[in-house]
Design a protein around this nucleic acid. Sequence first.
DNA 1: CTTGCTCCTCTAGTCGCTAGAGGAACTAGG
DNA 2: CCTAGTTCCTCTAGCGACTAGAGGAGCAAG
Lengths: 144, 144
Amino acid sequence: MTGIFTIGDAARESGVKVPTIRYYEEIGLLPSPPRTEGGRRAYGATDLRRLAFIRHARELGFEIDAIRTLLKLQDEPDQSCAAADAIARDHLAGVERRIASLTALRAELQRMVEGCSHGHVASCRVIEILADHGECAHHQGGRA
Amino acid sequence: MTGIFTIGDAARESGVKVPTIRYYEEIGLLPSPPRTEGGRRAYGATDLRRLAFIRHARELGFEIDAIRTLLKLQDEPDQSCAAADAIARDHLAGVERRIASLTALRAELQRMVEGCSHGHVASCRVIEILADHGECAHHQGGRA
DNA sequence: CTTGCTCCTCTAGTCGCTAGAGGAACTAGG
DNA sequence: CCTAGTTCCTCTAGCGACTAGAGGAGCAAG
Protein backbone atom coordinates (compact mmCIF):
# COMPACT_ATOMS: atom_id res chain seq x y z
CA MET A 1 0.00 0.00 0.00
CA THR A 2 2.45 2.62 1.17
CA GLY A 3 5.31 1.44 -0.96
CA ILE A 4 7.50 1.61 2.13
CA PHE A 5 8.55 -1.62 3.76
CA THR A 6 10.55 -2.54 6.81
CA ILE A 7 13.15 -5.25 6.59
CA GLY A 8 10.68 -7.62 8.20
CA ASP A 9 8.09 -6.89 5.52
CA ALA A 10 10.71 -7.43 2.87
CA ALA A 11 11.63 -10.74 4.43
CA ARG A 12 8.00 -11.88 4.52
CA GLU A 13 7.36 -10.72 0.97
CA SER A 14 10.45 -12.24 -0.56
CA GLY A 15 11.00 -15.26 1.61
CA VAL A 16 14.57 -14.14 2.28
CA LYS A 17 15.46 -14.04 5.98
CA VAL A 18 16.15 -10.76 7.68
CA PRO A 19 19.85 -11.38 8.40
CA THR A 20 20.32 -12.60 4.86
CA ILE A 21 18.88 -9.37 3.49
CA ARG A 22 21.36 -7.41 5.58
CA TYR A 23 24.07 -9.73 4.34
CA TYR A 24 23.11 -9.07 0.74
CA GLU A 25 23.36 -5.38 1.41
CA GLU A 26 26.76 -5.82 3.02
CA ILE A 27 28.17 -7.63 0.02
CA GLY A 28 26.68 -5.09 -2.36
CA LEU A 29 24.08 -7.31 -3.95
CA LEU A 30 21.21 -5.18 -2.74
CA PRO A 31 21.59 -1.37 -2.59
CA SER A 32 21.60 0.25 0.83
CA PRO A 33 18.08 1.61 1.26
CA PRO A 34 17.29 4.96 2.86
CA ARG A 35 16.64 4.93 6.59
CA THR A 36 13.79 6.18 8.69
CA GLU A 37 14.37 8.76 11.42
CA GLY A 38 14.85 5.92 13.82
CA GLY A 39 17.57 4.46 11.64
CA ARG A 40 15.62 1.59 10.17
CA ARG A 41 15.86 0.40 6.62
CA ALA A 42 13.00 1.61 4.43
CA TYR A 43 12.60 -0.46 1.29
CA GLY A 44 10.61 0.40 -1.80
CA ALA A 45 8.89 -1.78 -4.37
CA THR A 46 12.00 -1.85 -6.57
CA ASP A 47 14.02 -3.33 -3.75
CA LEU A 48 11.42 -6.00 -3.23
CA ARG A 49 11.53 -6.93 -6.88
CA ARG A 50 15.30 -7.11 -6.78
CA LEU A 51 15.13 -9.28 -3.71
CA ALA A 52 12.64 -11.62 -5.35
CA PHE A 53 14.95 -11.87 -8.33
CA ILE A 54 17.85 -12.76 -6.08
CA ARG A 55 15.85 -15.29 -4.18
CA HIS A 56 14.60 -16.99 -7.26
CA ALA A 57 18.07 -17.13 -8.76
CA ARG A 58 19.44 -18.58 -5.52
CA GLU A 59 16.70 -21.16 -5.50
CA LEU A 60 17.79 -22.11 -8.97
CA GLY A 61 21.28 -22.55 -7.59
CA PHE A 62 22.99 -19.57 -9.18
CA GLU A 63 26.02 -18.32 -7.29
CA ILE A 64 26.09 -14.84 -5.85
CA ASP A 65 28.62 -13.70 -8.41
CA ALA A 66 26.47 -14.92 -11.28
CA ILE A 67 23.49 -13.15 -9.76
CA ARG A 68 25.51 -9.98 -9.48
CA THR A 69 26.13 -10.14 -13.21
CA LEU A 70 22.52 -11.00 -14.02
CA LEU A 71 21.32 -8.05 -11.97
CA LYS A 72 23.67 -5.71 -13.78
CA LEU A 73 22.32 -7.02 -17.05
CA GLN A 74 18.77 -6.53 -15.91
CA ASP A 75 19.55 -2.90 -15.23
CA GLU A 76 20.62 -2.35 -18.83
CA PRO A 77 17.78 -3.65 -21.01
CA ASP A 78 19.34 -2.51 -24.28
CA GLN A 79 22.30 -4.83 -24.00
CA SER A 80 22.42 -8.12 -25.79
CA CYS A 81 21.31 -10.94 -23.59
CA ALA A 82 24.13 -13.19 -24.72
CA ALA A 83 25.83 -12.85 -21.35
CA ALA A 84 22.72 -13.87 -19.44
CA ASP A 85 22.25 -16.75 -21.80
CA ALA A 86 25.84 -17.87 -21.27
CA ILE A 87 25.48 -17.77 -17.52
CA ALA A 88 22.31 -19.83 -17.64
CA ARG A 89 23.87 -22.32 -20.05
CA ASP A 90 26.92 -22.64 -17.90
CA HIS A 91 24.81 -23.24 -14.89
CA LEU A 92 22.71 -25.79 -16.74
CA ALA A 93 25.85 -27.70 -17.68
CA GLY A 94 26.90 -27.73 -14.03
CA VAL A 95 23.50 -28.99 -12.95
CA GLU A 96 23.67 -31.76 -15.53
CA ARG A 97 27.07 -32.80 -14.25
CA ARG A 98 25.76 -32.92 -10.72
CA ILE A 99 22.76 -34.98 -11.72
CA ALA A 100 24.99 -37.48 -13.49
CA SER A 101 27.30 -37.75 -10.54
CA LEU A 102 24.47 -38.08 -8.04
CA THR A 103 22.80 -40.73 -10.14
CA ALA A 104 25.94 -42.86 -10.11
CA LEU A 105 26.15 -42.25 -6.40
CA ARG A 106 22.58 -43.33 -5.87
CA ALA A 107 23.24 -46.62 -7.65
CA GLU A 108 26.15 -47.28 -5.39
CA LEU A 109 24.28 -46.43 -2.24
CA GLN A 110 21.45 -48.67 -3.34
CA ARG A 111 23.87 -51.52 -3.82
CA MET A 112 25.13 -50.83 -0.35
CA VAL A 113 21.86 -50.87 1.50
CA GLU A 114 20.41 -53.69 -0.53
CA GLY A 115 23.44 -55.84 0.14
CA CYS A 116 23.26 -55.24 3.86
CA SER A 117 22.33 -58.47 5.56
CA HIS A 118 21.37 -56.73 8.81
CA GLY A 119 23.76 -58.86 10.75
CA HIS A 120 26.99 -57.77 12.41
CA VAL A 121 29.34 -55.06 11.38
CA ALA A 122 31.97 -57.66 10.55
CA SER A 123 29.98 -58.74 7.53
CA CYS A 124 28.23 -55.50 6.75
CA ARG A 125 28.13 -54.64 3.11
CA VAL A 126 27.96 -50.93 3.85
CA ILE A 127 31.16 -50.94 5.86
CA GLU A 128 32.79 -53.33 3.44
CA ILE A 129 32.22 -51.23 0.40
CA LEU A 130 33.40 -48.14 2.16
CA ALA A 131 36.54 -49.90 3.31
CA ASP A 132 37.36 -51.37 -0.05
CA HIS A 133 37.27 -49.02 -2.96
CA GLY A 134 38.07 -51.90 -5.31
CA GLU A 135 34.65 -53.42 -4.69
CA CYS A 136 32.89 -50.41 -5.94
CA ALA A 137 31.82 -49.11 -9.28
CA HIS A 138 32.38 -45.54 -8.31
CA HIS A 139 35.85 -44.81 -9.66
CA GLN A 140 36.71 -41.23 -10.52
CA GLY A 141 33.29 -39.82 -9.88
CA GLY A 142 33.19 -36.08 -9.31
CA ARG A 143 32.00 -34.50 -6.15
CA ALA A 144 28.27 -34.33 -5.83
CA MET B 1 57.14 -52.41 2.16
CA THR B 2 58.34 -50.91 5.38
CA GLY B 3 54.91 -50.33 6.79
CA ILE B 4 56.00 -46.81 7.66
CA PHE B 5 54.74 -43.94 5.58
CA THR B 6 55.26 -40.20 5.59
CA ILE B 7 52.30 -37.90 5.20
CA GLY B 8 53.26 -37.46 1.57
CA ASP B 9 53.16 -41.20 0.97
CA ALA B 10 49.81 -41.38 2.70
CA ALA B 11 48.54 -38.59 0.48
CA ARG B 12 49.70 -40.37 -2.67
CA GLU B 13 48.32 -43.71 -1.56
CA SER B 14 44.94 -42.43 -0.48
CA GLY B 15 44.40 -39.54 -2.82
CA VAL B 16 43.74 -37.27 0.13
CA LYS B 17 45.80 -34.08 0.08
CA VAL B 18 48.45 -33.50 2.72
CA PRO B 19 46.76 -30.52 4.42
CA THR B 20 43.51 -32.41 4.42
CA ILE B 21 45.12 -35.34 6.23
CA ARG B 22 46.42 -32.94 8.89
CA TYR B 23 42.95 -31.44 9.07
CA TYR B 24 41.40 -34.87 9.62
CA GLU B 25 43.82 -35.42 12.45
CA GLU B 26 42.98 -32.05 13.95
CA ILE B 27 39.27 -32.79 14.02
CA GLY B 28 39.88 -36.25 15.44
CA LEU B 29 38.83 -38.26 12.42
CA LEU B 30 42.24 -39.81 12.02
CA PRO B 31 44.30 -40.72 15.11
CA SER B 32 47.49 -38.76 15.72
CA PRO B 33 50.25 -41.02 14.46
CA PRO B 34 53.59 -41.43 16.22
CA ARG B 35 56.36 -39.12 15.12
CA THR B 36 59.87 -39.73 13.90
CA GLU B 37 62.84 -38.23 15.75
CA GLY B 38 62.62 -35.27 13.45
CA GLY B 39 58.99 -34.73 14.43
CA ARG B 40 57.35 -36.05 11.29
CA ARG B 41 54.20 -38.09 11.18
CA ALA B 42 54.85 -41.80 10.70
CA TYR B 43 51.79 -43.65 9.44
CA GLY B 44 51.20 -47.39 9.40
CA ALA B 45 49.12 -49.56 7.15
CA THR B 46 46.08 -49.25 9.43
CA ASP B 47 46.11 -45.49 9.08
CA LEU B 48 46.23 -45.81 5.32
CA ARG B 49 43.24 -48.10 5.37
CA ARG B 50 41.35 -45.68 7.57
CA LEU B 51 42.24 -42.84 5.27
CA ALA B 52 41.04 -44.77 2.23
CA PHE B 53 37.80 -45.47 4.05
CA ILE B 54 37.36 -41.79 4.78
CA ARG B 55 38.16 -40.78 1.26
CA HIS B 56 35.75 -43.21 -0.22
CA ALA B 57 33.00 -42.16 2.14
CA ARG B 58 33.64 -38.50 1.31
CA GLU B 59 33.51 -39.32 -2.38
CA LEU B 60 30.14 -40.86 -1.75
CA GLY B 61 29.12 -37.61 -0.14
CA PHE B 62 28.92 -38.71 3.49
CA GLU B 63 29.41 -35.91 5.97
CA ILE B 64 32.31 -35.93 8.37
CA ASP B 65 30.05 -36.66 11.30
CA ALA B 66 28.49 -39.64 9.57
CA ILE B 67 31.96 -40.93 8.72
CA ARG B 68 32.97 -40.54 12.34
CA THR B 69 30.11 -42.83 13.31
CA LEU B 70 30.85 -45.31 10.54
CA LEU B 71 34.48 -45.51 11.62
CA LYS B 72 33.48 -46.17 15.19
CA LEU B 73 31.22 -48.95 13.96
CA GLN B 74 33.98 -50.41 11.88
CA ASP B 75 36.12 -50.64 14.99
CA GLU B 76 33.55 -52.82 16.74
CA PRO B 77 32.76 -55.67 14.35
CA ASP B 78 30.50 -57.50 16.79
CA GLN B 79 27.92 -54.76 16.86
CA SER B 80 24.81 -54.90 14.78
CA CYS B 81 25.19 -53.04 11.56
CA ALA B 82 21.77 -51.46 11.86
CA ALA B 83 23.38 -48.10 12.59
CA ALA B 84 25.56 -48.23 9.51
CA ASP B 85 22.58 -49.28 7.48
CA ALA B 86 20.54 -46.39 8.82
CA ILE B 87 23.26 -43.88 7.98
CA ALA B 88 23.54 -45.18 4.44
CA ARG B 89 19.78 -45.20 4.00
CA ASP B 90 19.52 -41.69 5.30
CA HIS B 91 22.17 -40.56 2.96
CA LEU B 92 20.52 -42.32 0.06
CA ALA B 93 17.28 -40.54 0.81
CA GLY B 94 19.13 -37.23 0.79
CA VAL B 95 20.75 -38.03 -2.52
CA GLU B 96 17.39 -38.93 -3.99
CA ARG B 97 15.95 -35.65 -2.82
CA ARG B 98 18.79 -33.77 -4.41
CA ILE B 99 18.41 -35.61 -7.68
CA ALA B 100 14.71 -34.80 -7.78
CA SER B 101 15.33 -31.18 -7.04
CA LEU B 102 18.13 -30.90 -9.56
CA THR B 103 16.02 -32.56 -12.21
CA ALA B 104 13.26 -30.00 -11.74
CA LEU B 105 15.90 -27.33 -11.86
CA ARG B 106 17.32 -28.67 -15.08
CA ALA B 107 13.93 -28.55 -16.72
CA GLU B 108 13.55 -24.95 -15.70
CA LEU B 109 16.98 -23.95 -16.90
CA GLN B 110 16.32 -25.69 -20.18
CA ARG B 111 13.13 -23.73 -20.58
CA MET B 112 15.14 -20.63 -19.88
CA VAL B 113 17.89 -21.10 -22.39
CA GLU B 114 15.61 -22.55 -25.03
CA GLY B 115 13.27 -19.59 -24.72
CA CYS B 116 16.09 -17.11 -25.09
CA SER B 117 15.69 -15.30 -28.37
CA HIS B 118 19.26 -13.97 -28.32
CA GLY B 119 18.03 -10.46 -28.62
CA HIS B 120 18.13 -7.74 -26.02
CA VAL B 121 17.95 -8.05 -22.29
CA ALA B 122 14.59 -6.32 -22.30
CA SER B 123 13.00 -9.37 -23.86
CA CYS B 124 15.30 -12.03 -22.48
CA ARG B 125 13.55 -15.10 -21.25
CA VAL B 126 16.35 -15.83 -18.78
CA ILE B 127 16.05 -12.50 -17.06
CA GLU B 128 12.29 -12.60 -17.28
CA ILE B 129 11.90 -15.91 -15.57
CA LEU B 130 14.29 -14.93 -12.86
CA ALA B 131 12.43 -11.69 -12.28
CA ASP B 132 9.02 -13.26 -12.18
CA HIS B 133 8.62 -16.25 -9.99
CA GLY B 134 5.03 -16.63 -11.12
CA GLU B 135 6.17 -17.64 -14.60
CA CYS B 136 8.05 -20.56 -13.35
CA ALA B 137 7.23 -24.12 -12.49
CA HIS B 138 9.70 -24.23 -9.69
CA HIS B 139 7.60 -23.48 -6.62
CA GLN B 140 8.75 -24.77 -3.29
CA GLY B 141 11.65 -26.78 -4.59
CA GLY B 142 14.31 -27.60 -2.05
CA ARG B 143 17.87 -26.45 -2.29
CA ALA B 144 19.98 -28.40 -4.70
C1' DC C 1 4.19 3.10 31.39
C1' DT C 2 5.23 -1.19 30.70
C1' DT C 3 5.39 -5.30 27.86
C1' DG C 4 6.92 -7.39 23.96
C1' DC C 5 8.06 -7.17 19.38
C1' DT C 6 11.02 -5.59 15.85
C1' DC C 7 14.94 -3.41 14.60
C1' DC C 8 20.00 -1.97 14.98
C1' DT C 9 25.28 -3.24 14.98
C1' DC C 10 28.82 -6.28 15.87
C1' DT C 11 31.35 -10.53 16.40
C1' DA C 12 31.90 -15.31 15.83
C1' DG C 13 30.54 -19.79 14.16
C1' DT C 14 29.17 -23.22 10.48
C1' DC C 15 31.38 -27.00 6.87
C1' DG C 16 35.21 -28.96 4.73
C1' DC C 17 38.62 -27.75 3.40
C1' DT C 18 42.54 -24.52 0.89
C1' DA C 19 46.31 -21.13 0.77
C1' DG C 20 50.17 -19.05 2.40
C1' DA C 21 53.91 -17.57 5.70
C1' DG C 22 57.98 -18.78 7.89
C1' DG C 23 60.92 -22.16 9.29
C1' DA C 24 63.11 -26.99 10.20
C1' DA C 25 64.60 -31.39 8.55
C1' DC C 26 65.51 -34.75 5.36
C1' DT C 27 67.80 -36.50 0.43
C1' DA C 28 70.84 -36.40 -3.56
C1' DG C 29 74.58 -34.69 -6.00
C1' DG C 30 79.12 -32.66 -6.22
C1' DC D 1 81.18 -31.83 4.04
C1' DC D 2 78.36 -28.51 1.67
C1' DT D 3 74.60 -27.14 -0.88
C1' DA D 4 70.25 -27.21 -3.31
C1' DG D 5 65.89 -28.84 -3.56
C1' DT D 6 62.16 -31.12 -1.67
C1' DT D 7 59.31 -32.34 1.97
C1' DC D 8 57.80 -31.63 6.22
C1' DC D 9 56.34 -28.75 10.46
C1' DT D 10 53.07 -25.15 12.81
C1' DC D 11 50.23 -21.37 12.54
C1' DT D 12 46.89 -18.11 10.82
C1' DA D 13 43.52 -16.61 7.59
C1' DG D 14 40.29 -17.25 3.85
C1' DC D 15 36.48 -19.36 0.91
C1' DG D 16 30.89 -19.23 0.07
C1' DA D 17 26.66 -18.13 1.82
C1' DC D 18 24.95 -17.68 5.32
C1' DT D 19 23.39 -18.39 10.66
C1' DA D 20 23.48 -17.46 15.62
C1' DG D 21 23.83 -14.71 19.42
C1' DA D 22 24.99 -10.61 22.36
C1' DG D 23 23.65 -6.24 23.79
C1' DG D 24 21.03 -2.36 23.02
C1' DA D 25 17.43 1.01 20.97
C1' DG D 26 12.96 2.08 19.01
C1' DC D 27 8.12 1.52 18.52
C1' DA D 28 3.07 0.10 18.91
C1' DA D 29 -0.66 -1.69 21.85
C1' DG D 30 -2.95 -2.16 26.16
